[in-house]
Amino acid sequence: MLLAITRLAEKGSADAALCKKYGHECRIVSPLRAEIRSSTIQTFVLAAADGEFDAIFFTSALPAQKIAPLLNPTITKKSRVIAIGPQTAKVLHDAGLAAETLPTFYSRDFVPYLGEWINGKRIGIPRADVPNPGLINAIEDAGGMAFEYRCYGLEPTNELLNFDEVDAVLFTSANSYKMALLPSMQNILPIAIGDITADAMQAGGLEPKVVGDGSLEGTLNALNIYLESVQ
């Protein structure tokens, strides 16, 4: 199948190889663009270097790409560095940072992963300028202190997505669905990367036929299981 995958242009470099592994091709379509805030990144890097955080949580690969090369690998002697998934972890590892990886692909599992350790700890979170009150409230409810650094904004491209000859579209986030300009979805299989994205699609009137585990690889695996079931 030819899949359209909603990604920031900066984040789709590994998708083609992974899709090929599962027998598919892909086209990156970008309903959003990132506006990098260099001054916020620099403020975060300086705070991290000064040892202001007991843990740093990278919630996606893009901030890891922008920030990891600016961090001295010895930062891990001051702070636990935690990635939301293996792709983000790879970016950190490639920069020489010894990063832990959450066992799932959802920020809601960050606090359960840390457990009682989080009590009294300062957590630095470089991320997109998208509210995530669930994460912040969970950290604070567990006795931690959350310090968000909104190091990039997400703006709609306001461009009609190119679905020419596409067999399926894989939405990789709730915002990539809600802020997309969509052409006709007739005869196109709608796919959600995870349950949060699926909820947004359902609220917008588009029922996903496949829902992944929050990762691209898990979603491609779920897609192939679905395709086998309908043959």
Rank of each mutant, 00 (worst) to 15 (best):
T101W: 03
W117E: 05
T59M: 04
P112C: 02
K21A: 11
L71N: 11
R37L: 08
A89C: 11
V91P: 09
A14I: 07
I82R: 13
Y113Q: 01
C19E: 03
K78E: 00
K121S: 10
P63Y: 02
I125S: 02
F105D: 08
K20S: 14
I123T: 10
S79F: 00
V29R: 11
A34W: 02
A14V: 11
D94A: 07
R122P: 08
A89K: 15
A89N: 13
A99V: 03
A48S: 13
K121R: 15
T101A: 03
S107C: 07
H24M: 12
G51E: 13
S30A: 14
G115A: 11
P31E: 04
G96S: 08
A49T: 07
R33K: 15
Q65H: 07
D54M: 13
P103V: 00
E35C: 13
I56S: 12
T88P: 15
D15R: 06
A49C: 08
L102I: 04
T43V: 01
A61S: 14
I123N: 12
T40D: 09
A83G: 14
H93T: 01
D109I: 01
A17P: 09
Q87A: 13
S30V: 12
I118C: 07
T76D: 12
Q65N: 09
L46D: 15
V111L: 13
I75G: 04
D50V: 01
G51R: 12
F53R: 06
E25T: 14
K90G: 04
F44P: 08
E25R: 14
F57S: 09
L46M: 14
C19Q: 05
R122G: 05
V91F: 10
A68G: 02
E52M: 15
G115M: 07
E116R: 13
